[in-house]
């Protein structure tokens, strides 16, 4: 399987408790996976291990069958294969929605024209194409989060990691953002979402429940 955790455990220091314990997990290309669990159950930690940001205390992360070490290649893989969506929409508030959506592509060396064209398509895809020229600070929370999703999708990453992307949104907006992130994502892009929201989770093909730092249930809805 493309992205694999093998007996991964993690703690933030030798004297600290284990926050991830003995997790085995495989995520294939194009999959959609929801990570559910109470606050403090290790969702964020697990995401950052999957996104190669945190090197686990024990166990291995394998990408396409090869173990990923703490090296420079990890940081390169991180910027070329992974995109992130955070709980609080993180954007350049004085720039337009389009400028924000183009950012990740530009950061990967795309030509400005090409970046804009792709970004417009992604804004359309997540339903905020008509807001392209509006400054980000004038957008509502759900609109802005969708701009951030467009920014992540535009780079056509292999993996999108989202940490409670609807945590601060109301019901109606949560549904829109969930759709944008899961159903409207490009084919071939896998999405892994940490969420409390059963509605968002139900849109994913797999749901993984964490309790006490370990996977307890894995099911398809």
């Amino acid at each position: 399987m493309p992205l694999t955790l093998h007996r991964v455990s993690h703690r933030y220091g030798a004297a600290m408790p284990w926050v991830v314990r003995g997790v085995d997990l495989e995520v294939g290309d194009g999959e959609s996976v929801a990570l559910m669990g109470p606050s403090g159950s290790g969702k964020t930690t697990l995401l950052s291990i999957l996104g190669l940001l945190t090197h686990p205390t024990e166990g291995e992360v394998l990408l396409d069958g090869e173990a990923v070490s703490k090296s420079r290649t990890a940081s390169e893989l991180r910027t070329t294969q992974f995109s992130w969506v955070f709980q609080t929409a993180n954007a350049l508030l004085r720039r337009t929605a389009l400028d924000n959506a183009s950012l990740q592509l530009l950061a990967r060396g795309a030509l400005p024209e090409a970046a804009r064209r792709t970004a417009i398509m992604e804004l359309d895809r997540v339903g905020v194409g008509h807001l392209a020229s509006r400054p980000a600070r004038l957008l509502s929370g759900g609109e802005l989060q969708r701009v951030c999703i467009a920014r992540a999708l535009a780079a056509a990453p292999r993996w999108i990691l989202a940490d409670e992307p609807t945590g601060q949104l109301d019901r109606a907006t949560t549904i829109e953002v969930g759709k944008a992130l899961i159903e409207q994502r490009p084919i071939g892009t896998a999405v892994i979402i940490a969420t409390h929201d059963p509605e968002v989770a139900s849109r994913c093909s797999r749901i993984i429940r964490l309790i006490d730092s370990a996977i307890v249930i894995e099911n398809s809805p």
Partner: peptide, 18 residues
């Protein structure tokens, strides 16, 4: 692949104006 220098300059100028 990472930022083109021209894109970085444009980005800086855009932030200056914005």
């Amino acid at each position: 692949m990472s930022w083109r220098v021209a894109s970085l300059i444009e980005e800086g100028l855009a932030n200056l104006r914005a």
